[in-house]
Structures are given as structure tokens and as C-alpha cells.
């Protein structure tokens, strides 16, 4: 009985392995710094830009997709967020640079949930911040003359009250 049971177990295990390899099709993503990352096809489903490409090529074999605008560091951060089911706590742990880059990649790859999550996090971050903080945050160059800026601030004076310290 014991021997038979072990045998049966081994068969089932092999079967399960076979099925797994069949079910989980992988996609190879090549990042801007030349790293190839193999990810599950289910992950790519949320990346609508890649999905559109895959539908157009319609192949059963593994696909290599270049991501010249995404670094391996950012891609692995995105994978973490996705496997963590977009936990807010994970987002809070990101640095400002990471948050901005992930938001841009989410926009580029058309990942709706991730875009909403990161854009909301950025909005939360800058909501009560000064104009100077936000200029620095987005690398915005101030092209107003000092007189123009003074005038503008005067127009909406109430919007400058109660702003957080930088």
C-alpha cells in the first residue's frame, strides 16, 4: 500500500509539473540596461501596450519584448507591486524618483491600475506642497519673470495659505 502510494504521488507530481510548464507561458522582457527578465504571461496581461503587440504577432512560442525606456530596477519594482496586489504600504516605501519613474512606465505600458495607484500617490505627496517643492519634484523650469509670478500668486492668494514646509 505504502509503495503504491508513493508511486502514485510521483506520477501526480510529474503530471502537475507538466501542466504547470504548459500553463505558465513566459515572456522575456529586455530592459534598457540590457537585462532579460522572464515574466509570467499573466503579468503581461496588465501591460496593454505589450498585449496589443502580442495579439498582433499571434505566436505560441516565447516572446522577447524590448523595453528601451524601462530599467531593470524599475521593472523589478513593478513586479513587486503587482505580486503584492498593489499594496499601498509598498507604494509608500518607494523613493520619489522610483514613484515618478514607475508612474511614467505605467503610462507608457498602459497599466491602468498601476497608473491610478502611482498618480494618486504623487497627488497625495504634492497636494499641500509649495510651488518650489513641486518644481523640484518634476524638474520643472520656471519660465515666469519674477513680476509675473508675484502677480499670479496675488490672484489666487488663498491657494497659498496653509502650505506644508518643504
Amino acid at each position: 500500500m505504502g509503495e503504491r502510494g508513493e508511486e502514485w504521488e510521483a506520477v501526480m507530481l510529474r503530471k502537475a509539473e507538466e501542466e504547470e510548464s504548459k500553463a505558465v507561458k513566459k515572456v522575456k522582457l529586455v530592459t534598457s540596461d540590457g537585462v532579460t527578465m522572464e515574466v509570467e504571461i499573466s503579468t503581461v496581461k496588465e501591460m496593454e501596450t505589450i498585449q496589443a503587440f502580442m495579439n498582433a504577432t499571434d505566436t505560441d512560442n516565447s516572446i522577447i519584448f524590448p523595453l528601451p525606456k524601462v530599467s531593470s530596477h524599475i521593472l523589478s519594482r513593478i513586479m513587486e507591486l503587482m505580486s503584492g496586489e498593489y499594496d499601498q504600504e509598498l507604494v509608500k516605501r518607494l523613493s520619489h524618483e522610483e514613484l515618478k519613474e514607475i508612474c511614467m512606465v505605467a503610462n507608457y505600458l498602459n497599466m491602468k491600475t498601476l497608473l491610478h495607484l502611482t498618480a494618486s500617490a504623487i497627488a497625495n505627496l504634492i497636494q499641500n506642497k509649495s510651488v518650489e517643492f513641486v518644481r523640484h519634484f518634476f524638474n520643472i523650469i520656471n519660465d515666469f519673470t519674477p513680476e509675473e509670478e508675484v502677480q499670479l500668486r496675488k490672484t489666487h492668494e488663498w491657494a497659498f495659505e496653509g502650505v506644508d514646509e518643504d
Binding site: K100, C103, M104, N107, L115, A119, S120, I122, A123, I126, Q127, N128, V131, V134, R135, F138, I140, I141, N142, D143, F144, E149, L152, R153, H156, W158, A159, F160, V163
Partner: peptide
């Protein structure tokens, strides 16, 4: 950040912040 992305973020902000950020550039 391109314009679409800027709009995406601005839409999540209250009017007070949006008015203040008129001064950015």
C-alpha cells in the same frame, strides 16, 4: 512628464492645489 500624465495627477488634486500649481511654469 508628458501632458497626459500631468492631467492624470492634477485630476486627483483639490482645486486649491491646482490653483497654486498654476505658478509652476
Amino acid at each position: 512628464f508628458n501632458e497626459d500624465l500631468m492631467i492624470e495627477i492634477l485630476l486627483k488634486l483639490p482645486i486649491k492645489s491646482v490653483l497654486r500649481f498654476k505658478c509652476l511654469s
